[in-house]
Amino acid sequence: MSTRIRAHWLLGSLCLLTAPALAVAPGETDAAKIMAAVQARPEGNRTKSRVLMMVKDSAGRERKRVVQSRAIDFPEGRKQMMLFESPADVRNTGLLSVDYDDGKKDDDQWLYLPSLRKSTRIAAGDKSGSFMGTDLTFADMTTQDPRDYAYKMLDANASEGGEACWLIEARPNNDKTATETGYVKTELCVSKDKLMPLRIKAWVKEGKKLKFIKFDDIQKLNGIWVVKKILAQTKRGDEVESKTIIAIQEVAFDQPDVKMEDFNQRRLEQGL
């Protein structure tokens, strides 16, 4: 059974956060046990989705990105491919990620820039950088090993939008994880009913910023909870620097045309 953490919102949503596989009582106060249950839930496999990302800065200037995403599980972890559909200047830019369950093993990531006609391996340190100008980072799209975090229950009786949840702190317990993610710590509000995060607050080391993420429009499709909208914003002090809204559309899973042999350089370079 997978032990991967889904604390990072984009991957969590794209991977179609699903119903819990491990039962945890609403009165549970052991944060690590709750997060293990969150992380151990079954995932939708062979998934496809089309994702709209809108970024707006404090001056109101708006940018839109549309991404087509595919993901598939393999024995050691999960592979994910994202291909940019728009705008025109980033069309066919692709990211192939191979995320390993074993946190000690560096994930593999390749970025294909069509202007260079070359897919380039990305070093792990790059993962704290912004992903295509959004409030998300490369690290947000990779899985994290729960052994790399120390969990702490902040509030066992919190609520979010009237929904009962646990407020849990996740703090990297090693420098490597802290550097890779760029986060000092994160706070997650985990739904007791859905056993999935409803909102996340992340302390960004660089610039001492705060990131806020809210999962919205959560729908149950074919028995699986699916997040259809994510709101992320970056704040410095009280000022909102930028905000990203992510609308996940055309979600489908167990797709026969999502095949293992397509998660390679060939598909990455072929583009859309």
Binding site: K56, E62, V240
Partner: peptide, 13 residues
């Protein structure tokens, strides 16, 4: 959120 808001109608693909 008053400083940055989205027009939700733009979310249609």
């Amino acid at each position: 959120d008053d400083t940055i808001s989205f027009d939700e109608s733009d979310l249609t693909l």
